[in-house]
Simulated scan of single mutants.
Amino acid sequence: MKIELSEYDAAWPGLYQRERERIVAALPDAELEHVGSTSVPGLCAKPLIDMMLVVDDPRDEASYVPALEAAGYRVTVREDDWHDHRILKGPDTKVNLHVFPRGCAQVRRHLVFRDWLRVNDDDRELYALTKRELVARARERERVQDYAAAKREVVLEILERAFLAWRPSSDDVEYVTETPAGDVRITLEDYNPAWPDWYAREEERIRGALGSEVVRLEHVGSTSVPGLAAKPLIDILLVVPDSDDEDAYVPALVEAGYCLRLREPGWYRHRLLKDSDPEVNLHVFSPACEEVDRMLAFRDRLRTNVEDRAEYEAVKRELATRGWERVQDYADGKTRVVERIVLRALG
């Protein structure tokens, strides 16, 4: 299939609006966005309107597909192994309607990329130039997927800059128990095969304390990645029905030996609890939280990709040679490499 690029067409937003009205008539509460190159004024694009629909569960097609089919849409792609992604085609406009679950990190990825290109002239021009060069070199038999794959490196490069600029502030922090600032030294250890056992003991303790309040419990962070050097600290991801409802889980965890360290209401309603034997960071989030998706994507990428694991470890070892005012400053120093690897994981 030959890829054809068109100069930006001022009619594209109107086509999106028409499709939006059609979809909202079928699904009145639809959470819908115009994404892709046709959503960026001044950017050349394939003349195809990409739209993104966010639902609770894309696999529950009965909750949205019949209504869309009645409006003329049809399902053409199902990817249960990739964020439960669906694509529907429109009735008369060239449309790709992408469906993702609420809390999926792909949603933020699409919006950050779009919004960055709308305001950053240099990266918009870089992306346009890359697309034009690829189209000029393309052969007739190349598929749309081949064209998309060829753009991947420049997309990741732009996304890395976009996410570093977008990244939500961590200033909205309420410390419940304080740790004095000072000359913090980071001590990394080679991977210890006992770390999964440490996590298993903590998992048993948490489940025993909370019972059915546990929606999800995962070993995350560097100690969850075989072969990766780490601080001997077990990072645990806990999803509860509502992280703001501390009465439902904090007292039971305190009774089990944890202490509430901090609240970050502006950062995904995050709570952090700690223990010291072994040292544990227990991160608490609510369901349908994109940070949960990102943390698991990062862990799974490091578990399966030797090159990314080596890149991450090299950065950590270099940062560990420095002195830090706070442990958080060391974590902030890893932001760029973490963001890069997460974006590779998301594809």
Rank of each mutant, 00 (worst) to 15 (best):
R322M: 14
P41T: 07
L117H: 01
V280F: 02
R161C: 09
I3E: 04
P66R: 10
V144Y: 14
A11V: 15
R86L: 14
W324A: 01
P28K: 03
A200K: 12
H85I: 09
V154P: 01
V184D: 06
R109H: 08
E291N: 12
G211V: 11
L237V: 07
D244H: 14
L228K: 02
Y330E: 08
D300A: 05
P47N: 12
E325N: 11
H85C: 08
R102T: 05
E153T: 09
F285N: 01
A138R: 09
G227P: 04
K274C: 12
K89A: 15
E218M: 07
A138N: 10
G333K: 04
P58V: 03
S276D: 11
V240Y: 00
L97N: 01
T130V: 12
L296P: 03
G90F: 01
R124A: 04
E7A: 14
E19K: 02
A288T: 08
G182R: 12
L346E: 01
L296I: 14
D92A: 09
A229K: 07
L238H: 00
E279N: 06
L134A: 12
C44I: 12
E290F: 05
A45G: 08
A67F: 04
E133C: 09
D92P: 02
T179A: 10
M51L: 13
P193Q: 06
V254E: 15
A148F: 14
P168V: 10
S169H: 12
E202I: 04
V154Q: 07
D275Q: 09
A229F: 05
P278T: 09
R344E: 11
D172I: 08
E311D: 15
Y73A: 00
T187E: 15
D244Y: 13
E4Y: 14
I23D: 00
C104Y: 03
L273W: 00
R124H: 07
A165V: 14
L156P: 00
R74P: 03
R299I: 11
I234H: 00
I49R: 00
A320H: 11
D146T: 13
R216V: 07
R108A: 08
T335Q: 13
A229Y: 05
Y258M: 11
E133A: 12
A26M: 02
D172A: 13
A256T: 02
H85G: 06
G323N: 13
I186V: 14
